[in-house]
């Protein structure tokens, strides 16, 4: 960490492949006083939804960084991962049911959409093929105070799709 509480962050974005998109995405960084260190534009690597992942390294104070991420999100840029240090909370759940038939990738996308939440790890086990219920272990990471929101999103999607949720115990218990 350098002076005045500045530290470096890595932000992973998903951009629509259109002219001006990248520039638009970088503006909030400069506007908020962040220092751009590097940009890795993975043009050859398209996400399942046809977007282009971009990894941006920058230096900023914590307050500046918050502003940057908020500005990116409000301008419609999809922020996939905003510096690992932002994800201070972790949540593991096991989902049981017809996971594949109920569109697993849609489920995952909806968990991410609740903001400040990312799917860090997924293990799927479907020993009996698609006939019997399958199980998935899901590790979600969330920024501070967001894990209960993430759990609510999981419950909501599961209720809608008829999935069972094996939740972790409430915080502080073991």
């Amino acid at each position: 960490m350098s002076d005045a509480g500045t530290r470096s962050y890595t932000v992973r974005l998903e951009l629509v492949d259109e002219p001006g998109e990248l520039l638009g995405a970088l503006e909030p960084i400069a506007d908020s006083g962040g220092n751009l260190l590097s940009i890795f534009h993975e043009r050859g690597n398209v996400t399942p939804r046809g977007r282009i992942p971009v990894e941006v390294d920058l230096e900023a104070t914590e307050a500046q960084f918050e502003t940057i991420v908020d500005a990116l999100r409000s301008s419609g840029v999809n922020v996939i991962r905003a510096g690992t240090e932002r994800y201070s909370e972790e949540l593991t759940v096991v989902l049981v049911g017809h996971l594949v038939e109920t569109d697993l990738s849609d489920s995952l996308q909806r968990f991410r959409e609740c903001g400040g939440v990312s799917v860090a790890d997924l293990s799927l086990s479907a020993p009996a093929g698609t006939e019997a219920p399958s199980s998935a272990r899901l590790r979600l990471v969330a920024s501070e105070g967001r894990s209960s929101k993430a759990l609510s999103a999981v419950r909501e999607v599961a209720a809608e799709k008829g999935l069972r949720v094996v939740e972790p115990l409430t915080e502080g218990s073991a």
């Binding site: 096991v94 049981v96 086990s125 479907a126 020993p127 019997a132 199980s135 272990r137 094996v166």
Partner: peptide, 11 residues
């Protein structure tokens, strides 16, 4: 509850 749920938890 399927056994696979317990296996994933154990991993």
């Amino acid at each position: 509850l399927p056994g696979s749920a317990l296996e994933l938890a154990a991993e």
